[in-house]
Amino acid sequence: MLANFSMDNFNSQSLKINKASRRSLFNAIMTGLSAACILTALVPLALVLFYVTVNGFNRLDLDLFTQLPPAPGLQGGGIANAIAGTLIVVAIATLIAVPIGVMCAIWLAEFGGDDTSIDEWVRFGVNILAGVPSIISGVFIYGLMVKPALPGYSALAGGVALAVLMLPTIIRTTDEALKIVPQDIRWAALGVGASKYQMVLKVVLPAAVPAILTGVTLAVARAAGETAPLIFTALFSPFWPNGITNPIASLAVLVYNFATLPFKPQQELAWAASLILVLLVLASSITARLVTRKR
C-alpha cells in the first residue's frame, strides 16, 4: 500500500477530541447532572426503606399479629385487628372492582373498536377516574353511604371507596392484557364456529388471566396502603372487626392515627404497620416485574 498516496493539506489534529472545549465540558457536565438527578431521586427511597425497616423491625413479633392495640399509656399489644380489617376492606373492594373492571376492559378491548366514539369516551373516563384524588372517593362514599346511614361508617363503605380507586388500574391492566393475546387465537376460535362470547370467555380471557392477576395484585397492594378514602368511611376501631356494617380498623388508618399520638408504643406500632404495608407493595411490585418479564 502506498501510504503517501493521498497527500493533501488536511489537518489531522482537527479530528481529535478536545476535552477542554465548551462542547466537551457541556456534555460532561450534563451527563453528571442527569446522573445526580437519579441519585437524588433514589435517596428518599433508600431513606424511607431504611427507617421503615429499622423502626418497624423491632416490633415484628408474634404479639403484633395476635393482639389488639394497647390503650394509651400502656405497653405491648399488636395490630391484629388492623391486619384483619385491612384484609376485609380490601377483599370487599376487590370483589366489587374486579368484575366491574374486567367487564369494562372486555368491552374496551373486544367490542370498543366497533363503536369508536363510545370507546374514546370510556377511555377518557378511565383516565379522568385515575386522576380523581383518593380523598374525593372518600368524600363521595361519605355522601353516598355514610351520611344517609346506608349503613354509615362501616367496612362496607370503606371497601366501596377503595373499589372506586382500584377500578382504573384494573381496567387498564386488563385492557393491556387482552390486547397482548394474539389475534390468531381469536380468529382460530371464530374459525371453528365459536360465538363471540364463547371466544372471549373461553379462549381470550383465560389466555390473559396471568397478566390480569398481576394487575389485580398491584391494585390490591396499592389499595391496602390507601388511607384517605378510609378515614371517614371505614373510620377506625380499637376492637376486633364486627361485621361489615360497623366501623373497622385498618393498617393505613392505624399508621395515621398512631403517628400523631405522643405515646412511644403506638408510634412503634405505626412503624411496624408501615413495614407490613411496604413489604406488601414491594412483594407485589417484584412479582409483577417477574411475571411481565417472562412474557
Binding site: F10, S12, L15, K16, I17, N18
Partner: peptide, 12 residues
C-alpha cells in the same frame, strides 16, 4: 480519513 485513523482513541 485522509490518513487519519478514524477509530483512534483520541478521535472525536
Amino acid at each position: 480519513y485522509h490518513g487519519q485513523d478514524l477509530y483512534a482513541a483520541d478521535v472525536d
